[in-house]
Simulated assay, not measured.
Amino acid sequence: MPDEPTMWELQRTFEAGHRELSADIAQLNTRLDAFVLREVYEAHRLADERQREAERAAADQRYNAMSEQLGQVRSQVVDLRDQVRKAGWTAISSFLSPIVVAVVLAFVLRGG
């Protein structure tokens, strides 16, 4: 019987095995806590992708609206330039017409 372990030795061996197994299970639990399921990862990735697409669409809408407003402003600038040009010619002609009429009248009245 000296080759067979005693009951106390068996108990200590079982307790040591139990402690090792508990430590291994605790370590496995900490690793599994950090593990993310593939489905969860895909769901988050798809949600992020949809959000980026929505932001991109909103930015495109803002860009299109601003482009349209810029086109309107440019056409207004062209219209204002034309109005200023016409007003300038009107001012010049209203200033020069009496002078031309006076010169013609002076020439005609002199007997020229």
Rank of each mutant, 00 (worst) to 15 (best):
F95S: 08
F35P: 03
L70A: 07
V103M: 02
F14T: 12
L96D: 03
V36T: 13
V84G: 02
G71V: 02
I99H: 00
F107A: 11
I25Q: 07
A102C: 10
R85V: 12
L32C: 00
L46E: 15
D48C: 10
R52M: 10
E42Y: 00
V36M: 09
R52Y: 13
V101H: 11
V103Y: 00
L37W: 07
P5I: 03
R50K: 02
R52A: 15
Q61N: 01
Y41G: 03
V73F: 03
L37I: 00
T13A: 13
N64S: 00
R19F: 06
R50E: 05
Q11M: 15
A87D: 00
L28F: 09
S22H: 12
V40H: 03
A87K: 00
A16P: 15
G88L: 07
R50I: 10
S97W: 04
L70K: 02
D33H: 07
F14C: 13
Q76T: 06
V101W: 10
A65D: 13
Q51D: 15
V84C: 01
S22C: 12
V73K: 10
R74V: 12
V40M: 09
Q83G: 03
Q72H: 12
D79W: 06
F107Q: 10
L10T: 06
D60I: 03
E4R: 00
R56Q: 13
D82G: 07
L105C: 13
V40G: 04
